[in-house]
Amino acid sequence: MTDSQREDTVWQTAVERIIRKHEWPLDDTAENELIAWLKNDPAHRAAYEEASHVWLLLVWFRTLKKNSHLLLFSRLPKIAVRAN
């Protein structure tokens, strides 16, 4: 596998994990497995963070479109992955 193929696989895995977590809350086994995957390689973490960021932006885009007053707040919400 080339570097870019490997990077793509990691990215797709990160996205898949986020989609799954969104669809169904993780049980303990799945949660531990996710943590193990994240610890396994800094690239996994980086991909997961990036995917989480995209994921969260997508919801805030709609919320802000409906509630432009939110822009008056001192900061936009800091939402962690737990928001999923």
Binding site: K39, E49, L56, L71
Partner: peptide, 24 residues
């Protein structure tokens, strides 16, 4: 489990910028 700052427990990692929202 993670031992490193700035991921799940650290929301700063995903601070949202207006510029990013525009791009999205």
């Amino acid at each position: 489990g993670l031992h490193v700052p700035a991921l799940m427990g650290a929301p700063e990692a995903t601070a949202i910028s207006r510029q990013h929202l525009t791009l999205i």
